[in-house]
Design a protein around this nucleic acid. Structure first.
Lengths: 231, 231
DNA sequence: AGTCGAGGGAATGTATATGATTTTCGTCAC
DNA sequence: GTGACGAAAATCATATACATTCCCTCGACT
């Protein structure tokens, strides 16, 4: 048993989520309550509860009297989520900037330096993990805890369900680490919050735009390009 | 029976949520599964599921082996949520602006005019409902559906759990409707998205700040005032 | 080919047992 | 008499097994 101190529904939750994270359950996979229950040696009720929790997180989709399957993330979903992240995370980073210690900055810079060095033997998954770590260091100190929660939730969902954006656009990596350093400098200088926010949003929007251009050259986020760039 | 076509857990969900909305269940109220189950003439399982859905929406808090109670919204929670709304909604409104029809604008303006006329016999609840309607008209057309979901969720939670902000600061109402008109003009003119976003955010931040000054003159959102104003 | 109906599989719901937590109450020390 | 500690009981969440209901599939019949 994984941990007897956890409730069964919690164990079921962790178990399912782990399978999704390791791609053992890929998007579209049918989650059958009875099967999972037998596998975990429990009745269906805790499993059902776990599944509905995951539904609330939008990690699985659920249909009445039919069942659950691992959520599909189509492009429009992906773009929408990433744009939402860019908006909320940039605000959170700006709000966090005044609470960052010199040690926080040092840590973030050291992560970014690892990213720079990793550009040679480029590994999208590793790079993405480092990228997430870098950004998390910068926004997680945000005094508005709710903003942090929103960013973590949205980001987490994507990393479970989708490959890293750098899998599709490895060329963006070099530009990305350069912008990271610029953001760090802005924070160190105590730049205006709106400038920090704008810089982070441009950085994130740029990465997303690189993906869009590469994968879907004909589409935008639903707006003329010139507007796109401004937001 | 309310509606036989709904699942029991759905009925339980609606029933509980309605009670919270009508203040019959006030924050802190203990939700006892068995009692609710008997009241609704069903077993505890659907009730339990409904409660956990509400937990996922952060409308109730849940403690293992103890039970659920209607969530308390303390000031810091309230401020954090409202700040998050101001950030996301302003972005959503800007992104929606290009999709608004002249009829949408006309409708919004007419709602705002009702608000203006209601300033004489001021009713915080009614005014707040109109306010929500006004803003919803402007952001709900946002092509990024996720942003709309986030705003709706956060806003909905507050209106269930808390009295309108205008209950505390009725004096803000007049200023508010004036800013609404300014926002409408910006949208009509096809102003830059960043300007629309900034205007909406200032508007919302201003309302929140009015509340803070009134209720807690000594506190800020965790930042020096000058930074506060900028974001 | 299209519709109706039977059957299997899986989700939903009930009744009941189990287990954890909180409260109550009685006893003992001060 | 008052306060504190501990045990027992009540309360309620958690989990199981079983029953029911629903949806989908597949095959027969028109």
């Amino acid at each position: 048993m994984t941990d007897a101190s956890l409730s069964k529904s919690q164990r079921a939750y962790d178990w399912i989520k782990a399978r999704i994270a390791t791609q053992e359950f890929t998007p579209g996979y049918r989650l059958v309550l009875g099967t999972i229950a037998k596998e975990l040696d429990m009745s269906v009720v805790p499993v059902r509860e776990a599944v509905r929790q995951l539904e609330a997180e939008r990690v699985v989709t659920f249909e009445r009297n039919v069942g659950a399957r691992v959520a599909m993330v189509d492009d429009s979903d992906y773009r929408a989520t990433m744009q939402a992240v860019s908006i909320v995370e940039s605000a959170a980073t700006a709000l966090a900037s005044r609470s960052l210690t010199v040690d926080d900055i040092r840590q973030a810079r050291s992560v970014n330096e690892v990213m720079v060095r990793s550009l040679d033997r480029f590994e999208p998954r590793t790079f993405s993990a480092l990228n997430q770590e870098f950004h998390h260091l910068l926004y997680s100190r945000c005094p508005n805890h709710r903003l942090v929660q929103i960013v973590d939730a949205e980001w987490g969902r994507m990393s479970h369900l989708r490959d890293s954006i750098f899998t599709f656009v490895p060329g963006r990596a070099a530009e990305s680490v350069k912008e990271h350093e610029e953001i760090l400098v802005l924070i160190e200088r105590g730049a205006r919050l709106e400038d920090i926010e704008a810089a982070v949003r441009r950085h994130r929007t740029g990465t997303l735009a690189a993906y869009l251009v590469h994968e879907h050259p004909d589409e935008t986020l639903g707006l003329p390009i010139e507007d796109e760039a401004r937001l």
